[in-house]
């Protein structure tokens, strides 16, 4: 069975390590915060100027001066730090963020990502996505394997305007975990109950299958 978005988030959480500073993009990546393993310390960065994102506030705690990059009200953990936007992107551009997780419309087998613009339809802007993908040491894309119409998002070459080139290292989808390697997408894990054939059918790019592919542990 394909994973739901919470399943994907749980699998992303397994990429976290104690002491990591992590930037989670809007959507599925943000859900990962709910599945940080107990006892593990991970500090979440919000590019609008916060290290140490806490849980959503209670109704009484809402503060309009405290939001995340998705403009949602949030809290800050004890020990958090606030800073301005140039300092924030200094952290990002300077390679100080250990892991960046973001969504995408398309990922190519060379590690290119398209995530910000659909010509003629969607002109929202790139926000901080281009800065993040150009500089993060470790970039994971979290997405459904196919779009609403069943079209593969893991493709040979991106058709939409790019966010960054040759930057994605790993893609975690509702069907599989794949790594970007020379020559294509290397299948690393299958979602529980999903066959290699199903993953192959849902992948337009070259899928490299070597040996037995284990099921994800989530």
């Amino acid at each position: 069975m394909a994973l739901d978005k919470h399943g994907i988030a749980k699998r992303i959480a397994r990429e976290l390590k104690d002491g990591f500073y992590v930037n989670l993009g809007i959507g599925i990546p943000t859900l990962t915060a709910n599945y940080i393993p107990e006892g593990m310390e991970v500090i979440l960065q919000s590019e609008n100027g916060l290290l140490g994102i806490g849980p959503f506030p209670t109704k009484d705690e809402i503060d309009p001066d405290l939001i995340n990059a998705g403009k949602q009200t949030i809290t800050a953990i004890p020990g958090a730090a606030f800073f301005d936007s140039s300092n924030s992107f200094g952290m990002i551009r300077g390679g100080h963020i250990d892991l960046t997780v973001l969504g995408a419309f398309e990922v190519s087998q060379e590690g290119d990502i398209a995530s910000w613009k659909i010509p003629g339809k969607l002109v929202k802007g790139m926000g901080g996505a281009m800065d993040l993908v150009a500089s993060a040491r470790n970039i994971i894309v979290a997405t459904t394997h196919t779009d609403k119409d069943g079209k593969s998002k893991l493709i040979k070459k991106c058709t939409l305007p790019l966010t960054g080139v040759k930057c994605v290292k790993r893609v975690i989808t509702d069907l599989a975990v794949v790594d970007i390697v020379p020559g294509g997408f290397k299948l690393v894990e299958r979602a529980p109950g999903v066959s290699v054939e199903e993953i192959k059918d849902a992948t337009e790019g070259i899928l490299i299958i070597e040996g037995d592919i284990p099921e994800m542990k989530i």
């Binding site: 002109v123 926000g127 281009m130």
Partner: peptide, 19 residues
């Protein structure tokens, strides 16, 4: 206004804009 061409727009990556 952007799609109709009334408004000129320059979109810049956020970190590049800040810097």
């Amino acid at each position: 206004q952007l799609l109709s061409g009334e408004l000129e727009v320059e979109l810049i990556p956020q970190g590049t804009l800040a810097e």
